[in-house]
Amino acid sequence: MALKRNVGLRGLKYSGGGPMLAWILHRISGLGIIIFVSIHVLAGFSTHVVGTDWGDPVNRVYESLPFQIFIFFCVLYHALNGMRIAILDFWPRLLEHQRMAIWLQWAIFVPIYGLSVFLMIRSALTSG
């Protein structure tokens, strides 16, 4: 099964459309999360358990506002898109409405992400 699966470099070419965008964003956000979590855990381990300071510059990047906005995009997008995939996989009859499901997903994503980013920027500006 696994060996028959091959996307190749053609898979990277953007061919347009909501499903392709969802697929590529799911990959980018998933890789973003795993890279972030790995480095973050190692930096935390070095700071708190080992007691070295190489993790400090890494932590400063993570605590910065632009990075938090980026990683929140990754987590929220990946979570909602993954939920859509799981729902459609477990109830295949809903596949009939899969394009509408992508729009529904954006309709949920945009208010939650927009409001959170607004609050994050506002609290960063007021606390100095």
Partner: peptide, 23 residues
């Protein structure tokens, strides 16, 4: 989370790796 993530990386890598030995 870690198991889900590492398995996801495996899926992405294996989309671009054909040879069974490299896999």
């Amino acid at each position: 989370g870690v198991t889900h993530g590492i398995n996801g990386v495996r899926m992405v890598i294996e989309d671009y790796l054909e040879s069974p030995r490299k896999r």
